[in-house]
Structure formats: C-alpha cells, structure tokens
Design a protein around this nucleic acid. Structure first.
Lengths: 235, 235
DNA sequence: GGAGAAATTAACCCGTTGGATAAATACTGT
DNA sequence: ACAGTATTTATCCAACGGGTTAATTTCTCC
C-alpha cells in the first residue's frame, strides 16, 4: 500500500495517446485500406483500448479523415521548405522531382492513403475544409518557376503549372504505388537500388528535356536488349 | 394448367451466368476494393444466388483474381491491335499515348482494380501464371519503335522501353485514378471535356518533346493566371 | 418417361466487427 | 481529503458477411 507513489495501472497522456492512435491508424489504413482496416488492430497497435479511439478521435471514418488530413499537411509543409524561388528554373524543377520522388519513397503510407481515398472517389476528403486551402501557394510557386524559365529562355514553353505538377507526381507515384504489379508483369524488381536510380534519372531527363529542348545526359541510360551492343547515344 | 411449356422459375445458362458473375464482380471490386466488396451484392447484381458464385468461380479471392486476370487480358489484347510497327516512330508513340489514355477513360474499373491489387502488394497477381507471360511481346513492340526512332534520327535518345511505358501509363493513370482528390485539392474539375483535351495534349507534348527534342505545338496550351495576359508561346 | 447429372435456390452457421454501456481509475481544484 | 471530471478499462451485443448444407428444379440421354 503505502509506497510513496505506487505503480499506476496506467498513466494519463491524452495528447500522446491521440498521436499514437493516429500513427497506428495511419499504418493500419495504409496497409489494409478503409474497409480492410480493423479498429481493434489500431487500438492494439496504439497500445490502447478500442474505446479510446472513439473517445479521442471519433468513429472509424473520422479517424480515417484525420489521418488523411495529417498526411496532406505533412507533405505540403515539407514542400514549402523547398523554396524553389532561389534556384535557376531547370535546377528548381530537378529539385522538385527529386523531392517528390524521395518523399514518396520515404512515405509509402502516403501513397496508399491516396489510393484508398481515390478508390472512394474522395468522398471523405470533400468533407475536409482544411485541405482545400493549402494548395494554391504551392501551385503559385511552380507557376513562378515556369514563368521565370520562359523569360530566361531556359524553357521552351509556358506549361500549365498544375499539369506539370500532376505529371511529375504521376511519374513518381505510378512507378512506386504500382511497383508491385509492374514488377510482376515485367518480371523485374523495380525497387532495388539500381532500378530506383535509373527511374529517377529517367524522370528528370524526360521532364527537363521536354521543358528545355535539350537532351539531358542522365536520360540516356538505355538498356540495350541482351542480344545487341549499345545503342547509339545520339546527340 | 397444362400450358404446353409452362413458365420456368429459372433458365439454365452456365456460361452466361459465369460471365454475368464476373462482370458484376468486376463492378463491385472496382467500386469498393477487395475488402469492401460484398459477395451478396455481386450475386444480386449478377441476378444470381450467392451460392452460384462459389459454384461457378470459387470463393471471394478466386473471384477477385479471375476478374483481375480478365482485365489484364482485355487491355493487352487491345494493345496488340495497335501495330505500331507500321507507323513512323513519333506517330507510333503518339498513338500509344492516345490509346492508353482512351483505354483508361473507357475502362475506369481497370484503374480501380490495379489500385486495389497494388494496395495488396500484388499478393493475388503473384499467384497468377497466365498474366506474367503476356507482357514481353508488348515490351518488344515498344523497344522496336524506340530503336527505329533512334536509327532514323527522330529520337534523341535510346530510352528503356519499360521506363517509357511506365511513364506513359503513369501520366495517364495518375491523372485519372487520382482525379477525385486532385480535383478537390486544386479546386478544378479535371474530368470535364476541356480539361481532358488539355491533358492529352500536355502528355503527348511532354513525351514527344523529350524524345525528339522539338517542341510540340499542342504542348503549349498554357493557362495564364487570370491577372495576366497570355504568356509568350516561345519557340 | 425416367434416372442421373447439372444448375439453382433457400436457409442456416458461426466467427468477426464496429460500436455501445457501464464501471474503474487517475487527476484537479478547493 | 473530497467532489467532480477526465481518462481508461472490461464486457457485451446486434448486425454483418463469407461460406456451407441440403433440398429443388431443369436438362440430357437412353
């Protein structure tokens, strides 16, 4: 009895608990999708009781939306730190591609969450008020880079910044989010180090070549078919 | 009573039933994912009893795999009909992009199925023996186009055909499969006619400009920000 | 016109799952 | 130290969902 402070059956830690719940939920939702996610597994992974989820966040859907909003929040805030304004345009685009690629590599759950939400035709995201506001600054950032590139003569065309971003994200996203099926159907491991390096080079080359009109060295990593010698590395 | 052929409670039609089941399953799986799909709904949509699914195809997972294989089968067989061999290389690439784009537009369930399967890290697809075999011809077709383009001087670089195809598919796929969330966060409808036309132009322009080094007219549909007059349509 | 096989239906089984209820435990101010 | 509140636990349950069993209807072939 009389221990100065006897060991507690549990400690209170509302904020910590909330974070652990959201982290556990992120893992569960990205691993199994919305319908496949199990509330009990989330609770277990968070070291909590199932009832806690409802107490701290809400029901399964609210939990899911909270996770989704958190995911967008995180990537957009990291992107703000890129400040592409101070780089010359081609270098800015290169950095944007590399950042996007590496972010997707480092945060595979983000990709899964996006897939899940699109499968649901953004039903939940539409309810979110927070998310909509945080994207226009990002678009303007890209628009500025493109305009500067056109003015300086580095870029051939004034491309729509939204199209450009969707293309960049798409080149990264599809490769990574679909690497499982692509690896199967093409019979090669798309996630080993060499393959990833080649992919990054390919994407940077593709986009910069299109924008600048000049062939980019890294783009030319072309695998010759086994029977042939190396194909000409033309101009 | 005694009508020469009294009305039947039901007709027999094994093959028809199997097709209806697979079609219903395709819709259900693409609309709700694997875990979200409901066996009863599939049965209802197929105008069948739940027991029929198990009788004609198998359990939920087998049903899903059958749908997935059918989907791959369909797109790959349509692709075979493209015969890019008889077009000059830039035109062949353009046609490949347009086909992929239109196929994805016409078959949104295919996109959903791929997303679902990748969410599951291709767990089911790996079990399929059929699917693996049908992709090398397609890759070789693209490889030939690229090689011809390099030889003729149309293309600047000998790009890896698998990378190229993943890029083309990715540009189309991401835009369409993620159009729901993208529309929300960018605040514009990406699926109206004008947006789709612009996207196709953008993709063709991007890829062909990168391959040929020449700016493609269609690529230059650049939306100026509302406050500004039209940005220079450079070179 | 009947026997056996094939196709289809109806009803049930039972583990799972999201969510709810109520009690127990820790914290806070006074 | 005590009342009131916030946080956490322990159970429970009704609905659901995949899958199975067994009976019913149609077809085929002799």
């Amino acid at each position: 009895m009389a221990k100065a402070k006897r060991t507690l059956k549990w400690q209170r830690d509302p904020e910590g608990m909330r974070l652990r719940i959201l982290e556990a939920a992120k893992q569960e939702f990205s691993a199994h999708g919305l319908a496949g996610a199990r509330v009990d597994r989330i609770a277990a992974k968070a070291g909590a009781n199932k009832r806690m989820l409802y107490y701290h966040v809400g029901n399964k859907d609210e939990l899911y939306l909270a996770v989704l909003e958190g995911a967008y929040d995180k990537i957009r805030s990291e992107e703000r730190g890129l400040d592409l304004e101070h780089l010359d345009p081609p270098e800015a685009i290169r950095r944007l591609i590399e950042f996007t690629w590496n972010y997707f590599l480092r945060n595979p759950e983000f990709l899964s969450l996006l897939q899940t939400e699109n499968l649901a035709r953004a039903k939940h995201l539409k309810k979110s008020t927070k998310v909509k506001s945080m994207h226009s600054p990002f678009v303007e950032m890209i628009r500025t880079v493109v305009r500067r590139g056109v003015d300086s003569g580095d870029f051939q065309v004034a491309v729509d910044p939204v199209q450009l971003y969707i293309s960049i994200a798409g080149l990264c996203f599809f490769y990574l989010s679909n690497s499982a099926t692509l690896s199967v159907i093409f019979g090669r491991d798309l996630l080993d180090k060499k393959a990833k390096d080649e992919r990054l080079a390919h994407m940077v080359g593709l986009v910069l070549a299109a924008l600048t009109g000049q062939s980019v060295a890294l783009f030319e990593i072309a695998k010759a078919p086994k029977s042939r010698s190396v194909v000409a590395q033309t101009v």
